[in-house]
Design a protein around this nucleic acid. Structure first.
Lengths: 152, 152
DNA sequence: AGCCTTTTCTTGACTCGTTCCAGAAAGCGG
DNA sequence: CCGCTTTCTGGAACGAGTCAAGAAAAGGCT
């Protein structure tokens, strides 16, 4: 886990001013992977005392466009943020509890980036979202759900 | 494009009561692929006159759980609905204008359903979202965006 | 065909995540 | 240390979607 000095260095490297709220937000995202905005606001306020929610929204956007954090928006959930950037990994979302886990790329090459027909689009990214049940939900839920209807 | 009688038959086949709003919503989703809820409401009202938005929300949910329509929620956009169900296809979303196009599965097998580490999750579906620029946006936008940083 | 039960639709208020705005505060180059 | 610029505060506002109670209608049954 990076130190405060490293967070400051990351901000400067992205041409962003170094402020206490920004360091706190960056730190919160690193310490709470896949946290939503309100969780990040809480974490930042534990750190600094009162911080406006607007500041956190602004900072998260600034960090996102700077490439220091990544915003993911799972269906049926609010926006969540994570610090793993640069490596293109994907996510498993639990249908029952909404838990999210990271998944590294399944295959070495990029088969999903070459669809059969791109309709003239210029594709620069493909994101994969796996859906299923997390370990605890799959055990508590009776094994009544045996559908297997999805191809990829 | 299915006829009204066929829409009614689809509803009955899903154990759903046949009502004019439901037929109109089902028809609207078939005629307007990837339309958002407000567009569907407009289309239904052109058909039937006044219909409450609540009815459309309820109907869309009922049709979704019945498997007659599919709900997609692209990041940065509201929920959209489409009638192509059963075949597992994916979507290209234009970063600039939000246009959506269908993409059939790139490969015959399901490589994306076997991630390198599933963290104990029971995966039953994988959804792929391609992001890029649609034909018109890629020509109007100057070719200044040459990043190619995504693997899958 | 006509009743009765259950489901569905209407109306209207309301929640929640997010954004907009104007002014105060703080970072940082000179 | 000063001043310009960016950032943060506080509060209002917005929009998609949800909740709740009662009216309307679908469909089974006689």
């Amino acid at each position: 886990m990076p130190t405060t000095a490293e967070f400051e260095h990351m901000l400067r490297g992205a041409s962003l001013r170094v402020t206490r709220p920004r360091v706190a937000v960056l730190s919160a995202v690193h310490h709470h992977p896949h946290a939503d905005t309100s969780a990040i606001i809480s974490a930042v306020r534990e750190d600094l005392g009162e911080v406006s929610h607007q500041a956190v929204y602004d900072i998260l956007r600034a960090l996102t466009v700077a490439g220091l954090v990544r915003c993911i928006e799972p269906p049926g959930s609010v926006a969540r943020y994570e610090a793993r950037v640069g490596d293109n990994h994907h996510h498993i979302v639990c249908r029952a509890c909404g838990a999210i886990a990271d998944v590294d790329c399944a295959v070495g090459s990029a088969p999903c980036l070459t669809p059969s027909d791109d309709h003239g689009f210029v594709i620069d990214e493909a994101e994969v979202v796996y859906r299923g049940l997390c370990p605890s939900c799959s055990t508590t839920t009776a094994t009544t759900d045996t559908r297997k209807d999805s191809r990829v």
